[in-house]
């Protein structure tokens, strides 16, 4: 698996990273394991956004909706029905993918900023419904103490589960990006008119990309339920969507691993900044301005520029 994703030195680093990730629970205290789990699932969320934003060039500005809906669908299945929890884990992503299909079908005719705005509008609708439908979703309290299967209740169980699911999803997403479909998607991003000319059904490809992105965001959502055992309406709020965009930009959205790196940087920073100041968003805002000014291609883009070749294969450079 790794051999196709990384080359040369990168391969060694990749294996080393994997081994470290699997051994972490032996070294780190419980709190840090929780943070690493959050990093993994947020990285998965950011990477799923990057499928459409970075590779597809679609202005998916309300990605958090799919994350939140996946989490809520799983949580409601777990608390309200007596079905096996493993079924609810599948239901969450499927509901997200279905939502991706519905929202995609409505929005896909519009381009760029109009697409983004219509999507934010639809996403806000979903948020309002979740926020206001007190009897069903718990309103602004959310749902707490979601029951989980025995094996996932321990922090290490949740961690390993998150790690394995994230790795599988990464592999699948990487395959998708490298597949003919992924190439077509990138072609559409760079030149939609020419793509249409050579016989690519632009809208259908974009729609499929939106569904896939929605699905993986839903996976990230149910992983959050597993790790945190709570859901709350802020998971669907538009500010979170823009934070995910920031993660993509910070890590570098022209590389596959960029969003994961961005998510890791932001969550680690948030954890440490929050311990001595409550003004985390101020720090995030200033950091963001510096990134936009000095690192428009993100951290990985910068590393790539400095090294030229090496660690990670650049997807595309504009």
């Amino acid at each position: 698996m790794l051999q196709s994703m990384l080359r040369g030195k990168g391969l060694i680093w990749g294996y080393a990273g994997l081994i470290i990730l699997f051994l972490l629970p032996l070294i780190l205290p419980r709190f840090y394991i929780y943070i690493v789990s959050i990093i993994l699932l947020t990285g998965l969320l950011a990477t799923s956004l990057n499928l459409v934003l970075g590779y597809g060039g679609i202005f998916q500005f309300h990605h958090a909706v799919f994350y939140g809906v996946g989490a809520y669908a799983t949580a409601l299945m777990l608390t309200r029905t007596g079905l096996s929890p493993w079924i609810s884990f599948i239901v969450g992503p499927i509901v997200s993918a279905a939502l991706g299909l519905i929202m995609g079908m409505i929005c896909i005719r519009l381009s760029k900023l109009y697409f983004a705005m219509l999507q934010i509008s639809l996403g806000s609708l979903v948020w309002i419904i979740v926020y206001r439908w007190y009897s069903f979703t718990g309103g602004d309290d959310g749902i707490h103490g979601i029951p989980l299967p025995e094996i996932l209740s321990s922090p290490n169980g949740a961690y390993y589960f998150t790690l394995i699911i994230t790795l599988i999803c990464f592999l699948i997403m990487y395959k998708i990006v490298k597949s003919p479909f992924g190439s077509a998607l990138q072609g559409i991003r760079d030149n939609p008119v020419r793509s249409e000319m050579i016989g690519i059904n632009v809208k259908r490809h974009q729609l499929l990309a939106l569904i896939i992105a929605g699905f993986f965001a839903g996976v990230a959502g149910f992983l959050f339920v597993v790790v945190d055992t709570t859901v709350f309406p802020d998971m669907l709020f538009w500010t979170l969507s823009l934070e995910i965009c920031i993660m993509c930009l910070l890590g570098g959205w022209f590389s596959f691993f960029g969003p994961m790196l961005g998510a890791a940087i932001i969550i680690v920073l948030r954890t440490f900044v929050s311990t001595f100041t409550s003004y985390w968003t101020l720090v995030l805002g200033i950091l963001m301005m510096f990134v936009i000014f000095f690192l428009p291609n993100g951290v990985l883009g910068y590393v790539e520029e400095k090294l030229h070749k090496g660690l990670i294969e650049p997807v595309i450079k504009e």
Partner: peptide, 17 residues
Amino acid sequence: HLMLLLLTFAFSLVFGD
């Protein structure tokens, strides 16, 4: 536009705090 939008979002975070 994407960059500008994120930049103004960064401003809104800073202003909020």
